[in-house]
Design a binder for these strands. Structure first.
Lengths: 180, 180
DNA sequence: CACAGATTTCAATAATTATTGAAATCTGTG
DNA sequence: CACAGATTTCAATAATTATTGAAATCTGTG
């Protein structure tokens, strides 16, 4: 990978190896986080790449198809995890990863919240509006379950939102020291 | 569903309807949380069921196979989300859901942490041990990414652990008021 | 220890989700 | 506005994951 491309020093074999392992790890983890292996791997590849990469580079290094690379890149842009980098005189597009892990975390939280929580909250609110006889014990029990879940969803939402807004200092100081 | 089984009152049609909707919602949400639709639906069914249910009941109400019901129930027991209820003189097993939502949350956090975080941390630690030339800029960059991720994983771990241990009062007071 | 009534296992199949790759589209330049 | 060099779309296919259902196993009782 990327041989002789840098004035300072080539990538030593050990490092290339470690990177490959990291990409593999991120791919495996990705699937357990509910994203496709390719998405996670492209992200990992860009995270550990010193230069911006083109779609061609990704296709070559991960042996994925052009279509897959294109769709994956688009989705990562959408998540805010990578950026387009245009080079004067080059028609191709290059991509770099957001390297600040706090920022990366924010993006991931945002995307997962949208996917896992927001949709559920909407349906839940709708369900909670059901009419019913408050004197009926079974109705009461059902309604309790429903509003407990709603309450929980609300707390989760607030927590995640707060985490996303957290500043670096706040994050480490207030959060870690006082809270834990 | 469950007609004439209760001395106080039968389930009114509206309520049965709302429960069916809830089961459907939970099933849909489940898939976006990375668990099978059936697992989520059985859990939802038991959450809103006033009585303990047998495997037969689940099969009938969710139209799933015996094998599926059996495996799903076993997994829910494993998560700690449902309990076995034995009835004297009955050979069949009945199941009830944990109804305390704080407890439910703890179980879910524990299971997801195990699946999504713990495995990753192990691999990460292993990767971070790689040898390398500290004078090489590319190696340094890689190592920074790695240890940032490790740090993040450590914080996530602590946060989740703390949330699991949280008492009801702590949860609402300290957490919501002071923290948010 | 044989039986009935249950549960569990697991190979086969169905359903879902990810990926390919070729055709269509876009985009900047002469 | 035609062309070259790129990107995107999407139907077909592959890979993965969930589910079935029948056979095997378990379990309490006479």
């Amino acid at each position: 990978m990327t041989p002789f491309d840098n004035s300072s020093s080539p990538t030593p074999p050990d490092l290339a190896d470690a990177k490959a392992q990291f990409i593999h790890l991120w791919g495996v983890s990705g699937t357990s986080w509910g994203v496709s292996k390719t998405l996670a791997q492209v992200h990992a590849l860009l995270l550990v790449s010193p230069q911006a990469l083109s779609t061609e580079d990704m296709m070559a290094q991960l042996t994925i198809s052009r279509g897959n690379a294109s769709m994956t890149v688009r989705e990562l842009l959408d998540w805010g995890l990578i950026y387009k980098e245009l080079r004067p005189g080059e028609r191709r597009e290059f991509f770099v990863a957001e390297k600040d892990m706090l920022q990366v975390t924010r993006c991931i939280i945002r995307a997962r919240k949208r996917r896992e929580l927001d949709q559920m909250k909407r349906t839940l609110d709708q369900l909670a509006e059901l009419p019913g006889d408050p004197a009926n014990a079974e109705y009461q029990a059902f309604h309790t379950v429903l509003s407990d879940i709603q309450q929980l969803a609300a707390v989760s939402d607030k927590l995640l939102t707060k985490l996303m807004q957290a500043e670096r200092n706040w994050f480490w100081d207030k959060f870690l020291k006082l809270f834990l």
